[in-house]
Simulated assay, not measured.
Amino acid sequence: MRSALIAAGRKLFVDKGFAATGTPEIVAAAGVTRGALYHHFADKEALFAAVIRAEAEAIAGQIESSGTPDLSPAEALIQGGEAFLSAMRQPGRARLMLIEAPAALPPDTLAEIDAATGGRTLEEGLRAAGVAEPAVLAALLSSAYDRAALAIDRGDPPQPWHEALRRLVTGLLP
């Protein structure tokens, strides 16, 4: 039932946005009662946070599975960035993660989700590469990757974004 609510919520949040999606639509799409929704989630925002957490975990999983043990830290960072951009091409994901989530969820919630998923992997990669201030650089680099994902989702040619991000990453490394 919880997974049905998350799946139905995801589809509706992608199609209509968080603000325009009502709980009656969600429960109808999931084939459950309103009581079931409130048994699993305190409110629509809690369901949306679960959708965003599931998306963030899927993205982090794709990033983590993209690497191989024989990569240098620099190569691992670049490959992880490429995996992020690939993961963000899933239909609706850029809208959910980069437009709807910042508009609907408190910054603390987003920071906690990021720290447990993609933000953690990026910071670990920067730390392994020996950069100073890996947490600060992870936040800045994450913003650059998010901007690229939005541009690519909007229809920009991906190659210039990929190349610029590679130059950015290699320029940060000692």
Rank of each mutant, 00 (worst) to 15 (best):
P157V: 15
V32S: 01
A144R: 12
A49E: 12
P106V: 08
F13D: 00
L96R: 02
A46R: 02
R34M: 04
T23F: 00
L173A: 14
A164W: 03
A8I: 02
Q159V: 15
L37G: 01
R167W: 08
I99G: 04
T68M: 10
H40I: 06
L77E: 02
I99R: 10
E163D: 15
A46I: 04
W161G: 10
A164R: 15
P73D: 06
D156L: 11
G130Q: 09
R93Y: 09
A129P: 07
I99H: 10
K16L: 10
H39S: 10
I26G: 01
T23Y: 00
V27K: 01
A50M: 08
I26N: 00
L110H: 10
A42E: 11
T21H: 02
Q90P: 00
A101I: 08
G9C: 09
D146A: 15
P69W: 03
L126Q: 09
E64M: 11
P174H: 12
P107T: 11
A128Y: 12
A30C: 05
P24H: 03
R89Y: 02
G125Q: 09
A151T: 13
A164Y: 05
L168Y: 07
H162M: 14
M1A: 14
S72C: 06
A135D: 06
L150E: 13
A49K: 03
D70F: 07
P73W: 05
R89P: 01
E25H: 00
A104F: 03
E112S: 15
M97D: 03
D153T: 12
A4P: 04
L150Q: 15
A94F: 07
S142P: 05
S72R: 11
F18G: 00
I152P: 09
H162L: 15
P160A: 13
L150H: 04
V27W: 00
I113N: 09
D108W: 04
Y38A: 04
L71K: 09
G35T: 06
F41W: 04
A148N: 05
E25M: 01
K44I: 00
E45W: 00
Q90R: 14
A50N: 06
G125M: 06
G61S: 13
A151W: 11
A36T: 07
P106E: 13
L12K: 02
P106T: 04
F13I: 02
A46E: 05
A151C: 13
I6P: 12
G125S: 08
F41P: 03
I26M: 01
R93M: 11
A151E: 15
I152R: 13
L85N: 02
T109N: 07
L110W: 08
A8H: 08
G171E: 11
A56Y: 10
R167T: 13
G80K: 06
F48R: 01
E25K: 00
F41K: 02
E45P: 00
A20T: 01
D146C: 14
V32K: 00
M97A: 12
R95T: 05
